[in-house]
Design a binder for these strands. Sequence first.
DNA 1: GTAGGGTTAG
Length: 748
Amino acid sequence: MKSPISASKQCIHRLLKPQKSSTTTTTTNLRRLSVAPDPIQPPSHEQLTQSAITNLKSTDDWTNNTILHQQLLSLPSNFLPKIARELETSIKALKFFHFINGNQSLSPLSLSSVFQVVIELAIREEDSVSLVNLLDLSKELKIPLSPHSATLLMRYFFRVKKIQNSVLVYEGLDPDVKTIGVKNTLLDLLMKSDRFRDARHLLDEMLEPDVKFPPNEVTLNIILPSLLRWNLGNENENENEKILGLVPKFGIHGLFPSNIWLTQLITKLCRSYRNDKAWDLLHEFMKFGKVEVAPCNALLSGLGKARNYDRINLFLKEMKENGIKPDVVTFGMLVNHLCKSRRVDEALDMFKKTREGIDGICIKPDVILYNTLIDGLCKVGRQEEGLSLMKKMKSEDNCIPTAITYNCLIDGFCKSGEIERSLELFDQMSNEGVNPTVVTVNTLVDGMCKHGRIGNAMEFFRKMQDEKGIKGNVVTYSTLISAFCSVNNIEKATSLFEEMESLGSPDALSYYSLISGLTQAGRPDDASFIASKMKKAGFHLDLVSYNTLISGFCKRNKLDKAVEVLKEMEESGMKADGITYNTLISYFSQKGDFETAHKFLKQMINDGNVPTVVTYGTLIHAYCLAGNLDEAMNIFNEMLITSKVHPNTVIYNILIDSLCKHGKVERALSMMDTMLQKGVKPNTTTYNAMLKGLSSTKRLKEALILMDQMRNQACDPDYVTMEILNDWLSAVGEVEKLRRFVEGYQVA
DNA sequence: GTAGGGTTAG
């Protein structure tokens, strides 16, 4: 089969052969050439060029024009490419090339430069067939391509999606022509064509210590954006990683990615859960000593997300050793970490020290640092201190509070139930020209809902929509939906859900709010319906959602439905966890179906879940309910012996309660002794169970001792305690003892 | 590097 390429090749070869031509045209051309403007002066090079061009363009038949040939060769060589370019088509230019080719006096360089013009013209004509032929011709005639035309050719083939031809162009080049510009071009094209393996081989070659054309800034700028574009999990990941591994080798040539690039690279790696890679890479660069604080912060942030505190501390030490000074961002992260671990005083201490420069580093705090601290204070219920800190940031550091500052404080006051203070702050921010955001609205809506003011929340939201143009988002809606579900107003919840659907797609959490609300409102079937709608919308129920649904069906005594959800969960590839199994074991055993409960226990263990104290607790609870105290005690004793899972307060409470209910108050008391011996702290429920047991057997003396014990352990009585004691003590005329107990005095 | 929505079992 004959390819179009070979056909075109024949056409080019025909052009190669000199053609016989008539002499008449030669004379005409000669006559034209001799027409010079000034008979005395010999024609200038420009004039000669101009007339040659006219000659060459007016007729095709000049291949045997020896005078023209001589005239052309008398011109300085830099005029020849100019003439070739004027011929406008690659065919004509090629013909011109052949016309002057073969002359000994012509340097290979000028021949080559004419050939480059042919290529340029062919590229402009977008004729890839003839370009391939020209490439062959250049090899055949041993005309070296210039770096410029090699570049043009490679880019052209890339443009027409024939990257393999670009590679061939490169491979056919003389080593001298493979300049850094040429190499960079190929590297760029390979990366852009996703040929990472070839790119890596080329780069590896380019980075050799003693190469003729060492890499430059451009080389780095080619590979870095490409590495930043790379997606995790694609088939090129491996190659991308290998290329990344080559980046430090630029250091041999005195090149480093800028700190901006480095920061982006580290961030990207950390976000793709490649902290180890980020760590290694940054350490490679630290050897060259050009690393600034920004990429270090990126790494610290990644380590923080992974809670790798050992490495954080080690790295902070290394930064110090390498003379990299932490900045306000570094401290922002450290302060944030302390705040999020509720170690607010340590955070305040660090803030104070760095602000005053006590440990040798002086940092001027910015608004983010203040916001972090204010939020930290609010999150532990110290919103009043947060408020004073806001005043301090204005007066002492000239920091203007932002919407975030106010949002933190508003949330703090909302969470403590001081909705009015939150609303005052809301007014204050408006007065100070700080615009509330949708987060401000959501915080207040949530605060009002959580404190039983759902109507106010709804009103406030509508007012914000009308007056401030804050439309509300999925968070607003899902907050309101949960709230309405919690007061069993399913109609309002559903209508809000529909309103949200009409505004845009609800997110998984909004679906979850409704599902969870319906489940808790005792309507697991409706919840299941929304769950199927959620799946149709492309969301998957997560583990928590599945567990909530399962427990919802269990609570409504629809165990078969619960098992159905479990099956569906497994089918969708979601693995049941300990909580799922605990829920099922709990309800099946409570119904007295210990066989199924044990079946789930077995399945749970086979599934790789270790039974926890909750698992044993549910079984003990169920055996107690079934009146099988012996089996309950067996499980309890087994826990004590195997000592893998220790009974906790809940388990002792179940047993104490059950023993008391069965009139075995003596054994309950000794159970409480065991509890104390084992260092398990009794709580209000423990005392309530025990006091109830003692009251039923009228053992007042022991009860009074327990009441004192309760006080000493700072265990507050609740309404259950008061009910038991009130009934009992007033019946036996010991109300005075109860009064003393309430006021916190000794009673025994 | 900072703010808002749910968390299931005894």
